Simulated scan of single mutants.
Amino acid sequence: MPNTSSGSKSKVTMKDVAKHAGVSQSTVSFVLNNVADVSIGEETRKKVLAAVEELNYKRRPQGLYVPSPVVPTLGFIVDEVATSPFSAITIEGAQEAAWQHGHLLEVGMTGEDREYETALLNKWIAQGVVGVIYCSILTRSITPPEALGRVRSVLVNCHSDQVHYPAIVPSEVLGGFAATEALIERGYQRIAFIDGEMWMEAAKDRLAGYRNALTTHNIPIREALIKEGNFLPSGGYQQTLALLDQTPVPDAIFCGNDLTAVGCYEALKERGLRIPGDVAVMGYDDQEIAQHMNPGLTTVLLPHREMGQWAVEFLLSPGDTNTKRTVKLECPLVIRDSI
């Protein structure tokens, strides 16, 4: 079933249907859209339709009434797509929300080329775009292109310290706090933290949350238990081995992201240690791999889909979007068997 947060069920997506039916998202799409030139077995078709019914999946509205001969459009600028799964998730959330309101979403990947961004914005503005979402793959402070100020706009996964723009970002400090507190509440006291590279805003904020949780619960902060990794399995592996060479070894390791946890798992198993029997492991991001690790990785969900949806709702709301307002969206825990 889809993850839940704050006691309410998340919107069911095509990905959830595919997982429930044990098929690919492409298969689900072909079945739901009755694609004639793709041969899909009757049993598979039945499984997909049964999953749709069981999960109460709501397809994008069909046959929307559009009062104008031209469907209104929202623009979505993102610096990169291929280097991370999160950009695509944010775009999907924004596209679904836009279409539910009878709007199209046009996406432009710019690689932070300011000249390209300006040309794209000028094109959209000339065509009467309703609003523009400006998204960064990394949570960070940005200087938006000047042309963005000429249209109703919102920043996603980034913020501007110089120009007044509304923005939405993950609540990373609270996410790091919640992850660490979940370990403390389960009795772990010697909790290590393997972070990413410290120039990253997410790495600094998750570390701040870890430190705040230890201080709140009167647990000494041991600098020897804090390691800088690289948000990759290699960093998780190397830094876990370094932690295991200490005496005593940690009873829990909070990894700054799920890829770090992959390397952490490898190092722990190489040393013959059980997860969570000997050492508990916490991740962060809730990437697809987290649920397939053995044991399943407890982690923190980055709300990229929800940020995309929020941005569309914000742009289409009747309120004033010109005043600076940075919203920090909750990063809920996803509990599995690693703690």
Rank of each mutant, 00 (worst) to 15 (best):
A179P: 01
I191D: 00
D245I: 00
T44M: 15
N230H: 10
C331F: 09
S6A: 15
I253Q: 00
T247M: 01
E197I: 09
H217D: 07
G256R: 00
D161L: 14
V249W: 01
V163D: 13
W124N: 05
G63E: 11
L241F: 07
S234V: 15
D337W: 10
D195I: 09
T118I: 11
A280E: 01
I191Y: 01
E115C: 10
V132I: 13
L155D: 07
V249M: 03
D245W: 01
E106G: 08
E270R: 13
Y65N: 12
G319N: 11
A51C: 11
A179V: 12
F193S: 03
C135I: 04
A88K: 03
L148T: 04
S8N: 14
T260R: 01
I275Q: 05
V312T: 12
T298F: 11
V173P: 00
A208K: 07
A252K: 03
A213C: 05
Y57S: 11
A202W: 04
M293D: 04
V327H: 03
N157V: 12
G187S: 09
I125T: 05
T44R: 04
I133S: 05
G229R: 08
R206F: 06
F231R: 04
N257M: 05
K19H: 11
V81G: 07
P61T: 13
H217C: 05
N33H: 15
L241E: 04
N122W: 10
H164K: 07
V151P: 08
K19F: 09
L155K: 10
K123C: 11
V70P: 00
D320M: 02
A21T: 03
P248T: 03
A213L: 07
S338L: 11
D285V: 02
V300R: 01
P220C: 09
L259W: 09
H164T: 08
E185K: 14
T13A: 03
